[in-house]
Design a binder for these strands. Structure first.
Lengths: 230, 230
DNA sequence: GCCAACTTACTGACTGCACGGTAAGTTCTC
DNA sequence: GAGAACTTACCGTGCAGTCAGTAAGTTGGC
């Protein structure tokens, strides 16, 4: 019955994804996961030992099936990586469940002692460095020097994809996940390959601006707030 | 004692921000908030009625103090809005607590029946339309037609700020919140004001590409996974 | 200026429930 | 018959919300 067991665990992992996605990890009870696979919550603990461990297996499972989905076993490099990301964004627009799971868990993971924290830390680190490599390959191919901006660009591309997902999940009628992701990724890639002067003028830090608009005028440190976009 | 009461409630709101930020809403107990202001959790319920209500007051409070921090009472328009956003990003790099509160709560809010869902939905809607207006003003000023991309660009700018915050919270040594935000915002604004051909070639949707790299080859619908960046 | 009537700001004790984990027993499979 | 795959029953805890009581104001009448 080993084959059957594996299948059963996979069912549990999928059910867990659904529950963690719709309720978050801390607020997603084992009993709800169990119910989906016609089991008691004790049955799930029999398979996975603890809820924390189940979460980690869920994340590992996702990564595994992602890799299995790739022709080879790795994300394409160079310009194809960015094409791949755009394609993924369009694909994600039809998989709200999975997108929500990742969006919820990745943000939840920044809280104190979250069991998935190390996972997401590592995940972003890996993805960023893969993006950096893709940029480097791309620059080499075009015979241009690798600009310092590639690190910012790499983080930004992942960031914009994640951020758009949150807005899209909140209100799919107002955000086109695929198109917006494509636009932003193209804008960022273009800015790396062929930099132009800043459209904002100066350096934008405001350190020498004469008329600070907000924030700078706020005195009580903690009362400042984050005016926008945070 | 009315004055004193107001002060007390403000203390509670700040304590709640700290707790919700470090533990999330569902996982952040009233007792911990109460402790910070030397009170029992029942005392907090006396002031705010319920935990849900406290959360909404926290969010309202933040927005209020943000507006109070602005010289006038509104976010600047036109190009100044984008300068303002960049400045905010640099400022946020020194306010991890507040950043975390918003990052955690905004993502948590996409879960089922979350009490802050309507708040964030409205918040993003407002911010996006302010960004759209800023772009329109900017285009008018420069005498160029308003491109269709402004909606995508507006969502993307907010998205990249939020997404970078998550990565930065997970590992501040690897991401420079201010610089990366500035780079991405400039790239996106530039792409709106002065569009260039896509560096990715074609339309990027992959619909006509002959060699799909990943995803497309995955058969079991739910097993597909989100290859990257989700 | 004082006292009674009332309100506000709590505390402490309790209720009830949700939930993760454990232990012991049962059934099914190899 | 051994072990895997469970179930049932139970424990302990964490936590939001209720409620009665108390102490410190606040207000109004005289």
């Amino acid at each position: 019955m080993r084959e059957e067991t594996l299948r059963r665990r996979e069912e549990i992992l999928k059910a867990a994804m659904a529950t963690f996605g719709s309720k978050g990890y801390h607020n997603g009870p084992l009993a709800e996961i169990a119910e989906q696979v016609d089991m008691t919550h004790a049955g799930i603990l029999h398979h996975f030992g603890s809820k924390d461990h189940l979460l980690l297996e869920v994340l590992r499972y996702r990564d595994e099936s992602d890799v299995a989905g790739l022709d080879g076993q790795h994300i394409p490099g160079g310009i194809d990586m960015f094409r791949h990301l755009v394609r993924t964004a369009f694909l994600n627009a039809q998989r709200a469940g999975i997108v929500q799971t990742y969006a919820v868990l990745s943000a939840e993971s920044v809280t104190d002692d979250h069991p998935a924290r190390a996972f997401f830390e590592g995940r972003y680190r890996t993805l960023r460095s893969e993006a950096v490599e893709a940029f480097e390959a791309l620059c080499a191919e075009r015979g241009v020097a690798v600009p310092a901006s590639v690190r910012h660009a790499s983080a930004s591309i992942l960031a914009v994809m994640d951020g758009l997902q949150v807005q899209w999940l909140l209100d799919p009628t107002q955000v086109d996940l695929g198109e917006a992701s494509q636009f932003a990724i193209e804008a960022i890639v273009a800015a790396v390959l062929d930099p132009r002067p800043s459209p904002l003028g100066a350096d934008g830090t405001g350190s020498v601006e004469q008329q600070p608009v907000a924030v700078d005028g706020v005195v009580p440190a903690e009362a400042a707030g984050q005016p926008v976009g945070a």
